[in-house]
Computed example of a mutant assay.
Amino acid sequence: MLQIKVFCAVCAFRSARRKAFGFVERFVRLKRYAIGIAMAAAVGAAAYWYISRPAPVTVVKPKRGDAAEIVYASGVVEPRIWAKVTPTVRERIVEQCNCEGERVEKDHVLARLDDTEARATRGELQARLSLAQEEYRRKLALSARNTASVQEVDRARTEVAQLEALVAAQQARLANYVLRAPSAGQVLRQDGEIGEVAELGTVLFWVGEPKPLIVTAEVNEEDIPRVEVGQRALLRSDAFPGRELEAVVDIITPKGDPVTKTYRVRFRLPDDTPLRIGMSTDVNVIVRQSPDTLILPSGAISGKRVAVVEGGDVRLREIETGIRGTGGVEVLSGLEETAQVISPFPAELAEGTRVTIAGGSGN
């Protein structure tokens, strides 16, 4: 009987322990479920907040200013009156004036080239001419005594005429060995040294008047229809950073260059311009100008649409634009001066999307 009671007690203990363990397992399982549900709820709440949160945007307000439609070109400062002096024969320089920066008169000798060989050729031709003339006189004398035919006299006269022409041509060639000033003016630049060989086409002297000055520029053929004589132009030069210089369209060359597809345009500079001969400049021809107009950055406009912030939502507006430049776009209508325009244009945001302005109001 004692063994039976002990066995029953052990069984009761084991049963109670199993019940206790089962309760603990259910508790742990319920706790895990509760934690999982809480985490899922937190993730869902975070996802909902992320999806429904206002999108941050940056805005700008239209600003008033002067809008200008311009045509761009690059040019070089040149004298209005000037000429290049180049040799027409390839020969060594034997004499050269030291006259850079000085005024010279027309036909002033600037340089001489070695004409030794050319003079020798002229001497040979003159000697042949003397012999031909003597032979012609002798034939005339013989013809007078009827001992020379008319044909012989004619041949002698023809040879004399030919040699006279050759001597005259050689004398004219000798003039090419002397470089002279084509007109009165200042020697603006002088190149080459005594002893150097002057190559054909090499400019040795620039002679002209230092004033007035012009800017010669090349304008693309698609822009030239908008350029007219008398238009104002703004110039920029690296020699005068931050300083705006002015010029006026003076001459438009009627014929363009079919290779470069450009037209040459000359701009008249004022007498007090600080620009110097040979300086390069950026030329901005003002085709049209609108003073005190609304201007928006180019990036804030997509076609003719802008996105504005109204009551925390995105609203799309159709606007009418005018002059488009590198600094912005002229707004003719469809936008108030106080509008908060999203910039850059938010192509990914739809109408009515909630937004928040990042970094202030865009003033």
Rank of each mutant, 00 (worst) to 15 (best):
P210E: 11
I295F: 09
V203I: 13
T202Y: 02
P297F: 07
G303W: 01
V283W: 13
V249A: 12
E209R: 14
R266D: 15
D223K: 03
P212S: 13
R264F: 03
E244R: 11
V207P: 02
S237W: 06
R266G: 02
R288F: 06
K255E: 13
G230D: 10
V219Y: 07
L275C: 08
G278V: 01
P210A: 10
T293I: 12
I251M: 04
E222L: 03
A247I: 08
N220S: 10
P212K: 14
L234N: 11
S237M: 06
A300C: 14
V259F: 02
V265Q: 04
N284R: 13
P210D: 09
L213A: 09
A233V: 15
I251L: 08
E209S: 13
L234I: 06
T253E: 13
R232A: 09
E222F: 03
D271Y: 02
T216V: 15
E228A: 14
R226A: 05
G303N: 02
Q231V: 05
P258A: 07
V287Q: 09
E218C: 00
I214S: 03
L245I: 12
E246F: 05
P270D: 14
V219K: 06
G303R: 01
V249G: 08
N284F: 14
D292I: 04
F240R: 12
S280N: 10
T202C: 05
T202E: 13
S302H: 04
A217T: 11
G230L: 05
E228H: 12
D272E: 14
T273R: 07
V248Q: 15
I252M: 04
V229D: 06
V248P: 00
P210Q: 08
P225Y: 00
G303D: 04
A300K: 04
F205Y: 14
I286D: 12
P270K: 12
Q231D: 11
D282T: 09
W206R: 10
I224S: 02
V248E: 15
S298T: 06
R288N: 11
R264M: 08
V265I: 12
E222M: 01
D271V: 06
V283K: 07
G208E: 02
V248R: 15
R232F: 00
D250W: 05
L269M: 10
L296D: 12
P270I: 12
L269E: 14
R264P: 01
I251K: 09
V207T: 04
V259A: 09
L213Y: 07
L269Y: 08
T216F: 00
P258M: 06
L269I: 08
S237E: 06
A217R: 10
T262R: 13
E218I: 00
S280K: 06
N284C: 01
T262E: 08
S290K: 14
S237H: 06
L245S: 10
G303K: 01
A247P: 05
V265R: 04
G230M: 07
S302M: 01
E221W: 01
T281M: 06
E209N: 07
E228Q: 15
E222K: 07
N220C: 00
G303C: 04
R276L: 13
L235F: 12
P258R: 09
S302P: 00
L294N: 05
S280I: 04
K304D: 15
T260V: 04
K211V: 10
R236W: 01
T293D: 14
K304W: 07
L296C: 13
G242T: 09
E246G: 03
D250M: 09
F240D: 05
G256K: 02
R266W: 13
K261R: 15
P297K: 07
L275W: 11
